[in-house]
Amino acid sequence: MEWDWDFVWQIMPTLLEGFKITLLATVLGAAVAAVIGLGLAIVRRSPITAVSRTVGFVSEFIRGTPLLVQLYFIFYVLPDIGIRLSPLVAGVIGIGVHYATYTAEVYRAGIENVPRGQWEAAKAANLTTRQAWIHVILPQAVPPMIPALANYFIAMFKETPLLSAITVLELMNQAKSIANSNYRYIEPMTLVGVFFLVVSLISVLGLRWLEERYARMDD
């Protein structure tokens, strides 16, 4: 079968439609991962061992099992207990929570990198724990983490095709349905690959820039 440019232009609008959903899922998933990851990292530092151990084990478990199965779990099992989510919401939660366990490690490393003296100074200045976190620790811990976080968000972007398995109409799913109805696989599948490759290569450049911009904060 030959490569057919006419077919490519014909399917492009549908693919772009899917690509929008892919981007949407990535952005929402990244937001969920950024927030929940920070929560996990803070809870893991809890002085109550039972709490920190449990959170540690749950993160290990999520990181040790496939995202696809977790998505199935959220999409098929939760409705049994009365939580019915739309595919996109289920997908965003699944992918966000999965990557939150990774971003939590980034946050943890970043927080541990803040010198002890900062905590002590915050205490000496009579700040509450909450104030110490918000005004002293996090502003210093977050900038050096940005490149590592961005790295995980790129990884997350590449995982969004999995959402097609729970019927989200993103890029991969659009390509699959085009392929199945026209019985032409070469163009849609290759284009999906090209889309992802182009975005990844651009984001690698962006990542380099972020590294240059924020790596200096270490010194």
């Binding site: 995982e159 696989y185 990844s200």
Partner: peptide, 16 residues
């Protein structure tokens, strides 16, 4: 191979 996801690669290998 790092720029595209495993899912896309698998489909490409299997269908294309």
């Amino acid at each position: 191979f790092r720029g595209t996801s495993i899912f896309v690669q698998l489909f490409w290998v299997y269908f294309v």
